[in-house]
């Protein structure tokens, strides 16, 4: 479209062709902020699981436990005005983008104080104020929509970047590649974050993907990509920094494959028989994103156990209040059935 520049000699792809450098260290404040955010997501999701078990949350509920470092690290690389869009495993993205826990939880329980007044549910929440564009239930739809967000940034001539999150499962949808083609053709500022949690519902990546190195999924469009340790929030943030810089400099889209893991089933109704308990436990013990930060904080003596307990208590308090609100807030007024169909 507007930019008819012939793609001149490309700048070298960011990190993919470099030897993986040592992960840049966080400051104390950064470690603490990441710890707190990741913990909020984990505790929130655990609570959502409880409420689901109590019958307060209905339908589908996809928990983000295990993947927290991805959204938290990416969010640390973004600035005001950047847009976020994702699929149905979206609670973590909403909390990371600064949406209020009570509003999110009340949406999960279908109450009037939810972000969508109870009409969207777990998979469909939005916040204009936080530039969070959903929350989309159709696998892969957010990739084309997110490309459209990048298009809008270019059209307006601002320097905002759109971040489209999707999973290893969605990465096999056709519209992903239609989007890649247009994004590179038009040099749109879009970061495609592929959250590879190793299973598309119950199907392991190797059983569904001819090319399981998702950082290479843009190769035929000349979109650079890199694989990132998605369990290490510092590595994610560093990759996010490189990617936002790449986009803001007008180089077009970029792919970040976040190698991560989900501890829970695909959704609440998934018994997760397709993998062993040992596999899950191994990741939990060796790679847990929150434990990594916690260990560093203690090792460097930046905080003591008591300080962390205090943070834990604050986070639990936020989550408990959100659950209380989501349980006590009334359901939507029946008159809301017919509102918001048209503007």
């Amino acid at each position: 479209m507007a930019t008819n520049k012939k793609s001149a000699a490309r700048a070298p792809a960011p990190a993919s062709e470099q030897t993986p450098a040592a992960v840049p260290a966080f400051t104390r404040e950064e470690e603490l902020a990441a710890y707190r955010q990741m913990l909020l997501i984990r505790r929130f999701e655990e609570k959502a699981g409880q409420l689901y078990g109590m019958g307060l949350i209905g339908g589908f509920c996809h928990l983000y436990i295990g993947q927290e470092a991805v959204v938290v690290g990416m969010q640390m690389a973004l600035k005001d005005g950047d847009q976020i869009i994702t699929g149905y495993r979206d609670h973590g993205h909403m909390l990371a983008s600064g949406m209020d826990a009570s509003g999110v939880m009340a949406e999960l329980t279908g109450r009037r104080g939810g972000y969508s007044k109870g009409k969207g549910g777990s998979m469909h929440m939005f916040s204009m104020a936080k530039n969070f564009f959903g929350g989309h239930g159709i696998v892969g739809a957010q990739v084309a929509l997110g490309t459209g967000l990048g298009f809008a940034n270019q059209y307006r001539g601002n320097d905002a970047v759109a971040v489209a999150y999707f999973g290893d499962g969605a990465a096999n949808q056709g519209q992903v590649y239609e989007s890649f083609n247009m994004a590179e053709l038009w040099k749109l500022p879009v970061i495609y974050v592929i959250e590879n949690n190793r299973y598309a519902m119950g199907t392991a990546v190797t059983r569904a993907s001819a090319q399981a190195d998702f950082s290479r999924r843009g190769v035929s469009f000349n979109i650079p990509g890199e694989q990132v340790d998605g369990m290490d929030v510092r590595a994610v943030r560093a990759a996010g920094d490189r990617a936002t810089k790449w986009c803001r400099e007008g180089n077009g889209p970029i792919i970040l494959e976040m190698q991560t893991y989900r501890y829970r089933g695909h959704s609440m109704s998934d018994p997760a028989k397709y993998r062993s308990r040992e596999e899950v436990e191994k990741v939990r013990h060796e790679q847990d994103p929150i434990e990594q930060v916690r260990a560093r904080l203690l090792e460097k003596k930046w905080v003591g156990e008591d300080d962390l307990k205090k943070i834990d208590a604050e986070v639990r308090d936020i989550v408990n209040r959100s659950a209380d609100f989501a349980s006590s807030d009334p359901e939507p007024d029946p008159a809301e059935l017919y509102t918001d169909v048209y503007r």
Partner: peptide, 28 residues
């Protein structure tokens, strides 16, 4: 209106419909 506002797309209906909707969600 020029190429910024009159845009030839590839033959990619699903994709450009999604791009259009995304741009509309962003206010265009």
């Amino acid at each position: 209106f020029g190429p910024k506002r009159v845009i030839d797309t590839p033959i990619t209906e699903h994709g450009f419909a999604g791009v259009g909707v995304g741009a509309a969600l962003a206010g265009l």
